[in-house]
């Protein structure tokens, strides 16, 4: 690695420094736009006691779901945990701690974390179990709760295209939480489908500048589909 070149040679190198008990912020929505090879590398390393913030926990045997098999996750911060029997079993038995967080609040927690904003007020969750124990303030006659932002020791994400400096482009709805997740990690690791030479991406079309990215690797992706729905012609 030299200068602004963020490209690393292997998945092992990409996740170097990951230790038991760390917090990881992960991009992806369901199985769409997930850093599938980085997740596999975490499984291979056998790191345990992890706290992971991600919208979902994958499904059985796919995505973050594979980290449940060896009980590597201690705590999950997510908005939706359906479609995952192992997750439900571990949550019900108390082995897995779960902090259910509204989807918009989760995205904003990551965004704020990456932007150096420690907390923010939102109407989302006021008067619900999510708001319990949180500071409430009134602005303009409406109630808002104080939500703290999120920072991770690592963030793992998937983008479509990058240049060697880590300037990123995402594709369609595979963008989802990925840009915010990247900004919220102390070490931001991104895997992409294609790495091009510097200067080949139009600066106007870069979705996330390379300043947020620490390590970059090109991978191949299974891109599993959770709900394949089609219409007939």
């Amino acid at each position: 690695m030299s200068g602004f070149d963020k490209v690393v040679g292997s998945y092992e190198e990409a996740m170097d420094g990951l230790e038991d008990g760390m917090t990881i912020i992960a991009g992806g929505f369901g199985l769409c736009g997930i850093p599938e090879n980085l997740i596999k590398e975490i499984k291979r390393r056998g790191t345990t006691g992890l706290t992971i913030a991600s919208n979902n926990a994958g499904v059985d045997g796919k995505g973050l779901g594979v980290l449940l098999e060896d009980r590597q996750i201690k705590k999950m911060i997510a908005s939706y945990v359906g479609e995952n029997a192992l997750f439900e079993a571990q949550m019900m038995s108390g082995e897995l701690e779960v902090e259910l967080t509204p989807q918009g609040t989760l995205a904003e927690k990551m965004r704020a974390g990456g932007a150096g904003i420690p907390a923010f007020y939102t109407a989302t969750g006021y008067g619900t179990p999510v708001g319990e124990g949180k500071e409430v303030r009134e602005f303009g006659g409406r109630h808002y709760i104080l939500e703290e932002s999120l920072r991770g020791d690592f963030s793992i994400a998937k983008a479509w295209k990058a240049d060697r400096y880590g300037n990123l482009m995402f594709r369609k709805t595979a963008r989802n939480f990925n840009p915010m997740a990247i900004t919220a990690g102390k070490i931001a690791v991104v895997e992409v489908e294609e790495i091009v030479e510097v200067g080949q991406l139009d600066p106007d079309e870069i979705h996330l500048p390379g300043i947020y990215v620490n390590r970059l690797i090109q991978g191949t992706f299974a891109k599993d589909i959770e709900q394949r729905t089609v219409r007939s012609a």
């Binding site: 369901g30 199985l31 594709r171 709805t173 990925n178 915010m180 979705h207 709900q227 089609v230």
Partner: peptide
């Protein structure tokens, strides 16, 4: 297209004039 799903994780399409953005 595996990269184009709705909030229910179903595969969908886009209409003319559609736009894409991040979760925040």
């Amino acid at each position: 297209d595996a990269d184009l799903v709705n909030a229910g994780k179903q595969t969908v399409t886009m209409v003319k004039g559609a736009s894409l953005f991040n979760s925040a």
